[in-house]
């Protein structure tokens, strides 16, 4: 099959909110290619979702309602998505990079004999070849790789929260198609689902660290830091005074040259002035966000992003913004 025989952009995520973000991205790509935007809605309530997807930019939605699709399972989902893509030949297939999306996309791509790029943060169409060009972070955040595709469909997974959903458009025209395809039962069986337990501190291995310093007024206010950390899946860190002088946190949390040197993707310094010992401990953080009341605090010199303000107000605002933009009940 020649590349030119593939047309249209498709999106799928088992999480509705992520699907809406992908629709926004997919719409842009479809428009620049001058093709239709398709979406896949699988499982329980798929039909209701389908009309939502149209309101958010899809021209066509394929609905799958087989009992084996009622909860996500990679094998039947692969059967259906790869089956549909084989029939209808989209040129681009975007899948939300949730953990489930990430186990699905490579299986689908492999079955279709094509390539897949994971966790793409930038996607553009190269004019003449109509090829998708993507960028993704590699080497633990040290570098950015630019990739393109030889085959079709071009499969990419997109991390949640990177693209904003479009405005909802009532009465947007679109077609809903019921997909009937052979689906096999999954060979894995779910025994139990439960909440995640909290692990012990390993701050040096943490991907995100929310850290606090002298800007905190009372030991019980650590809770504020913990809440933000929990929301972001982060470990709690602190500067020397909190661990050594005040002993509000154990030394496991102490970030600085003489204790733990951290190398997270993101370091959020809340109410930390930014003494050199502390800065040396966060040298390897990829991005530093600093929150401090003092406009002249040295921490801002060592930060990528800075918010001047009272951490007691900034942290709740950050939590609210994060919840609104990213976190959602699935």
């Amino acid at each position: 099959m020649k590349n030119e025989e593939y047309r249209n952009v498709w999106v799928f995520s088992e999480v509705k909110e992520v699907a809406l973000e992908l629709l926004s991205l997919g719409r842009q790509l479809a428009d620049s290619l001058g093709v239709e935007l398709g979406a896949l809605a699988l499982g329980n309530g798929a039909e209701a979702q389908a009309s939502e997807y149209i309101a958010y930019g899809a021209d066509r939605v394929y609905v799958g309602q087989h009992p084996a699709l009622s909860r996500f399972s990679v094998e039947p989902y692969t059967d259906l998505i790869a089956g549909l893509a084989g029939q209808h030949r989209p040129e681009v297939l975007l899948i939300g990079a949730t953990k489930r999306g990430k186990e699905l996309a490579p299986r689908v791509a492999t079955r279709l004999g094509t390539g897949c790029a994971a966790d793409c943060i930038s996607l553009t169409i190269e004019g003449e070849s109509r090829a998708l060009q993507v960028e993704r972070v590699v080497y633990s955040g040290n570098a950015l790789a630019m990739l393109t595709y030889r085959n079709r469909p071009q499969v990419a997974t997109i991390p949640p929260g990177i693209f904003q959903r479009r405005e909802r458009e009532e009465n947007r025209p679109g077609e809903i198609i019921l997909a009937e395809l052979p689906i096999r039962e999954p060979r894995t069986r779910v025994r139990e689902v439960r909440e995640k337990e909290k692990g012990s501190v390993n701050i040096e291995a943490a991907e995100v660290v929310v850290s606090c310093g002298r800007g905190l007024n009372h030991p019980e206010d650590i809770q504020l830091i913990r809440e933000l950390a929990e929301l972001l899946g982060a470990e709690v860190g602190c500067s020397r005074p909190i661990a050594a002088d005040l002993q509000w946190l154990s030394e496991d949390h102490w970030v600085g040259l003489s204790r733990h040197k951290v190398r997270p993707k993101l370091y959020i310094a809340c109410g930390i002035s930014g003494q050199i010992q502390h800065i040396a401990g966060i040298r390897d953080a990829r991005i530093v966000l600093a929150i401090n009341q003092d406009d002249a605090a040295p921490i801002f010199q060592s930060a990528d992003y800075g918010i001047v303000g009272d951490l007691y107000q900034v942290i709740p605002a950050l939590k609210e913004a994060y919840q609104r933009i990213v976190k959602r009940e699935s």
């Binding site: 020397r240 600085g256 040259l257 003489s258 050199i276 010992q277 040396a280």
Partner: peptide, 9 residues
């Protein structure tokens, strides 16, 4: 002076 500090090895 950083080297002179006993917080540094």
């Amino acid at each position: 002076h950083l080297g002179y500090s006993d917080e540094y090895p």
